[in-house]
Structure formats: C-alpha cells, structure tokens
Simulated scan of single mutants.
Amino acid sequence: MEERHLGRSGLLVSRLGLGTMTWGQDTEPDEAAAQLTAFVDAGGTLVDTADVYSEGDSERILGHLLREVVDRDSIVLATKAAIRPDGRYDGSRRHLLAALDASLERLDVDNVDLWQLHVYDPSTPLEETLSAADEAVSSGRTRYVGVSNYAGWQLAKAAAWQSAWPGRAPIVSAQMEYSLLRRDIEREVLPAALDAGVGVLPCSPLGRGVLTGKYRTGIPADSRAAAPHLSEFVQPYLDEECGRIVESVVTAAEGLGVSPLSVALAWVRDRPGVVAPIVGARTVAQLEQVLRSDALTLPQEIREALDDVSDMSASHP
C-alpha cells in the first residue's frame, strides 16, 4: 500500500487507515485480530482509536493485539482525548494528560505515534489545551499531535499558535468526516488545513456505509441502520438527495467494473489535502473489500462527474 507524509511532518502513514470505533461493541476481539492482521498484511500502517470508543475497550483490545498478534513497530498508532465518559468536552490540561496516561495504560505502550485532540472545548482556553499537546510530545508520550472535529477557524488558530514559537508541537493532522455525502469541510476546514500544511484524515469516507449501495432497496437486517445504537448515525444519509449521489456512484462503478465502495473511497482518498481515509469495518470480509479497492484510481471524467453531482453549491450557501 502506498504511503504518504502526514501533513508537513516526516511521518509516513499508509494511504488508508484502519478505524476501531466498533471494537469491543460490534466487533469481537477475534474479529478485530483478523482485521488487524489483514490490514498489516496488505501494507496498512495507520490504526486509529480513541479513549472513549467502547468505553475504553477499543484501546484494550488493540493493546492486546499489539502484544500477541502484530508487532507494535509495524503500525502507526493513533488515539484521541478530550471527551469525558459522560460525553462532556474537556480540553483542560488536567483532563487531557490524565486521559493520555490512561490510554497508554490500556494500550500497554510507552507512547503513541499520533495523539489527537478529539473535539474543541470552548470552555477551556485553546493555549491551555495546546500546552497539554506540547507536554505530551516533550515527555515522550506521543511523537506527533493532531486535532479532530475542529472548525476551520479553530484549526487555523491552533496551527498558527503552535507554529508561532520554536519548540511547540506542530499540528500535523485533522480528522474530519468527509465523503461524497459530506463535503462541507471544503468550505473552511480543508482550505485551512492546506494553508497550514495539516494532513486531513477523513472519517466515515463511505458516507457511514451508505455509499456502498447497500441501502438502495431498503435497510438490511445486519446493517448499522438496523442497529438501535447506530440507526440515528446512518439515517441522515438516507434521504432523496443522498440517494441521487449514491445512484451516480453505482453508475460509475458499473461502468468501471468495480464496486461502489471502490469508487467512493478512491474519490475521497485522492482529494487535495487528504492523506488517509479512516475506514472502519464490522467484519474482516468487509475490510478485505476495502483493501482490494485501494488499487483503483478514478478517471478524470468520472471524478468530475461525481464532483458535479455532489456539489454543495446547489443546495447550500
């Protein structure tokens, strides 16, 4: 699998990342082991988790697999902090550094490669939040820092603050939802990332699974939309406008002789500023389909057609 630099840093990561949000809830440890093995065997390196995923079980499972299944040094390990277990945002220095220490304990590692500030906390001064990132790097608990779910101005402010003084840890990545069904980061977040040299890590690059085409004729019983705890996550992308985009993806896939998944993933993977879409799979079979799709590069005319059909300007200011 091709590798790309994460932003302006020297860190190389695979151009697809493995997401672990469902590990410990919808994905059992044995299935997680099979996914991680398949991912690494395909040349994947970037593995993403967070302290709140499955109440910490995602990190615990990943930590076990790094001891028993794959070599820790074979992956670029990324996690996040800034959300309390009760859902409150907390970007305070106290919470962030304690959360990082707890993540390292669950992962059973001395450090992570990428530590991401999961959300922007408006109740904490940004300079305090970023001081925790500096401490995390200077103490050796992480090698790089990034942000997640930051608005464009928040990302620009954080990146500018960190670059304003020698010795501060630069912001190297921004993880944001981005797909043919969710292009709003192109208004401000993506331009800010490009200007600051921050690499974008799209999450939900398959439109929460909708761009695979599985919901064209209904809701499969084994799908996320059928699961009580995930149905609200998928439902916003089951409207008529999204359906029109899905049909265009299906048409392009049929013309190329590939799956809709391959088309949707190739589109977002090769957008300006994007380093590595983060793909989460419920089963190893689903992940293997994603990994097989990595070879596809969309012809320019198909890329432009998909740009047009998913253009935000027709329905958004």
Rank of each mutant, 00 (worst) to 15 (best):
M1W: 06
R4M: 09
L11P: 13
V13K: 10
V13C: 08
L16G: 00
L18D: 02
L18Q: 06
M21T: 14
G24P: 00
Q25E: 14
T27K: 01
D30H: 12
A32D: 02
Q35C: 10
Q35L: 06
Q35P: 11
A38W: 13
D41A: 09
T45P: 05
S54C: 10
E55W: 14
G56H: 07
R60F: 03
R67A: 12
V69S: 07
D73V: 12
S74V: 05
A78T: 11
A81W: 07
A82L: 06
D86C: 01
G87R: 01
Y89K: 14
D90G: 07
S92K: 08
R94V: 04
A98F: 12
A99Y: 01
L100N: 04
D101M: 06
A102S: 12
S103V: 10
L107C: 07
D110E: 14
W115T: 08
Q116W: 05
H118L: 02
Y120S: 03
L126S: 04
L126T: 15
E128N: 01
A133F: 06
S139T: 15
T142V: 12
Y144M: 09
V145Y: 03
G146K: 00
Y150P: 10
W153C: 11
W153A: 15
A158S: 13
Q162N: 09
A164Q: 08
A164F: 03
W165R: 15
M176C: 13
E177A: 15
L180D: 08
L180E: 04
L181G: 05
R182P: 00
D184P: 00
I185C: 09
I185P: 06
P191Y: 01
P191K: 02
D195L: 09
A196L: 07
G197E: 02
G199C: 12
P205Q: 01
L206A: 04
L206N: 02
R208P: 12
L211M: 05
L211S: 05
L211N: 08
G213R: 04
Y215W: 07
G218A: 08
D222S: 11
P228V: 11
H229R: 13
H229I: 13
H229E: 09
E232L: 15
P236E: 00
D239E: 08
G243E: 09
I245W: 01
V258P: 14
L261Y: 03
S262T: 04
S262V: 05
V279W: 07
G280Y: 00
A281G: 06
T283C: 03
V284M: 11
V284G: 11
Q286V: 09
L287G: 10
L291Y: 07
E304I: 14
L306D: 05
D307F: 06
S310R: 02
S313F: 11
S313T: 13
